[in-house]
Amino acid sequence: MTLPYAIMIFITLQRISELIIAQSNTKALLARGAVEFGRSHYPVMVLMHASWLAVLWAMVGGAPVNMALLAVFAVLQAMRVWVLATLGRRWTTRIIVPKDEAPISSGPFRIMRHPNYFVVICEIAVVPLMFGLVWVAALYSVLNAAMLWVRIRAENAAYSPA
């Protein structure tokens, strides 16, 4: 197995496991009375991320791997783990607002308001660039920026006092 495919297997398995965890957390949060926001844009976000993965799978082949960007990717994974560990059972891929609970303000949330989005922004660019796929990094960075414009507005509105 080549390094590009090993990286893609890692990313794919990571995303699948995150979806399983997110689904479990979402069910638990909703059962406790939490409310979902931004439901209408969620399928578009999933399609964008799935197509990013599909394009990468189709394009990486025997591409050389930029080892400096692989190191950046490794740091991003550590940041991702920090975000998920900080959010714990509140982490989900949807915008789920628990009843009577303030937004998390510890861990990476002390440093920035949306650290998971920062990680995703970086990954969407770094992973394709690691394989020399500049056009994939550019295209999906633009698509992700548009998605995050919608998503962050929905999330900020969901947590704003009524």
Rank of each mutant, 00 (worst) to 15 (best):
M1R: 12
M1K: 08
L3G: 01
P4Q: 07
M8S: 12
I9K: 14
F10C: 13
T12I: 08
L13C: 12
Q14M: 06
R15W: 05
I16R: 12
I16K: 12
E18V: 00
L19M: 15
I21C: 10
I21A: 13
A22L: 04
Q23H: 14
S24Q: 15
L29T: 04
A31K: 06
R32K: 15
R32E: 14
G33P: 11
V35M: 14
E36R: 14
F37V: 02
F37L: 03
G38T: 02
P43G: 04
P43I: 01
V44W: 07
M45I: 13
V46M: 13
V46W: 15
V46I: 15
L47W: 03
H49V: 07
A50C: 12
A50P: 00
S51I: 02
S51M: 13
L53C: 12
V55L: 09
L56P: 10
W57P: 07
W57E: 09
A58S: 13
V60K: 03
V60C: 12
G61V: 07
G62C: 02
A63D: 05
A63Q: 15
P64E: 04
L69N: 05
L69E: 09
L69Q: 08
L70K: 06
L70H: 07
A71Y: 04
A71Q: 08
V72G: 05
F73Q: 02
A74I: 12
A78W: 14
A78P: 00
M79L: 10
R80V: 02
L84C: 03
L84H: 09
T86D: 06
T86C: 08
T86F: 05
L87S: 02
G88S: 05
R89N: 06
W91I: 03
T92R: 02
R94H: 15
I95N: 00
P98F: 11
K99P: 01
K99V: 14
E101F: 08
A102E: 14
P103E: 10
I104V: 14
S106G: 13
S106F: 01
S106A: 11
G107M: 08
P108W: 09
P108K: 11
M112V: 15
H114R: 05
Y117H: 10
V120L: 15
I121K: 03
C122S: 15
E123K: 00
I124M: 14
I124F: 15
A125H: 02
A125N: 02
V126S: 10
V126Y: 09
V127M: 04
M130R: 11
F131T: 07
G132P: 04
V134E: 07
W135N: 08
A137F: 15
A138S: 12
S141A: 12
L143N: 01
N144K: 01
A145L: 14
A146S: 11
V150Q: 10
V150N: 08
I152D: 04
R153A: 14
A154P: 00
N156C: 04
A158R: 02
S160K: 11
P161E: 12
P161Q: 07
A162K: 10
A162V: 09
